[in-house]
């Protein structure tokens, strides 16, 4: 691998990892609300969370530009208060990736949460466990397979996020040029076919490894948890 290729792979891994770390707690919270709470407007929250699955990624990138650009309502505030700039940075790439992969995480976590028998939480309650106690000692351990599977799936998908990233943070070598962006650039460059083929192979391998890892971890955990 050349230095540029290595850069792209490392950047992709870092962006995907940060997107998962940032999105995971939020995904657990949203999944819990969707599965366990009967709040008003739940179906709207559900639809909103799943929007990135059906919207063109370019639209998501565009909305991010509007909101998180240095003149946008949130981006402007972040820049003025903390000097944090998301646009044209790898942090911005991670944010775009989080939003695009968020539905995948929520789905996996929600399914595993719906599998957790609420009767076990009631049992814990009669044994003296309050709400947080129940969540940490019963609910969370039992939904762990779903959380980990969701995280690994989102990570694998995050490695390949293209449209929202290129729209929001552009295609800057070493900063925002992740694996798919490098692949796209190679295709646009005369004589870049060999490079493109190598990058495609790397993408393919990483994605496959991620999905297999997700399944493997979920199985191991299910057995560990006695189910």
């Amino acid at each position: 691998m050349t230095a540029a290729e290595l850069d792209a792979v490392q950047l992709s891994l870092s962006v995907a990892l940060r997107s998962v770390l940032f999105g995971l707690p939020l995904a657990v919270l949203v999944a819990w609300i969707l599965a366990r709470r009967r709040v008003a407007g739940r179906i709207f929250l559900d639809a909103f969370v799943h929007l990135p699955l059906v919207l063109p990624p370019v639209v998501v990138g565009y909305l991010l530009l509007l909101l998180f650009g240095t003149r946008g309502p949130i981006g402007g505030w972040l820049y003025d208060t903390f000097g944090v700039q998301l646009i044209f940075t790898s942090a911005g790439a991670a944010l775009a990736t989080t939003i695009m992969t968020f539905p995948l995480m929520v789905r996996a976590i929600r399914i595993s949460l719906e599998d957790v028998d609420a009767g076990l939480e009631d049992a814990a309650r009669t044994l003296g466990a309050g709400a947080w106690d129940r969540f940490w000692t019963i609910t969370l351990p039992l939904m762990l397979p779903g959380i980990l599977a969701g995280a690994v799936t989102a990570f694998a998908a995050g490695l390949g996020e293209f449209g929202a990233v290129i729209t929001f943070v552009s295609n800057i070598p070493g900063e925002t040029r992740t694996l798919p962006l490098a692949l796209y650039t190679a295709l646009q460059t005369p004589g870049g076919d060999a490079l493109a083929a190598r990058l495609a192979t790397i993408s393919f391998s990483l994605g496959l490894a991620g999905l297999l890892a997700a399944e493997f971890i979920a199985r191991r955990l299910r057995r560990m948890l006695g189910r």
Binding site: D117, G119, L120, D122, A123, A124, R125, T126, L127, G128, A129, G130, D133, I138, L142, L225, G226, R227
Partner: peptide
């Protein structure tokens, strides 16, 4: 959680 009633359910509900 503060009633201290030991409830044994029909389906045991042991923590797996």
């Amino acid at each position: 959680e503060r009633r201290r009633i030991g409830y044994v359910f029909q389906d045991a509900r042991l923590f797996p």
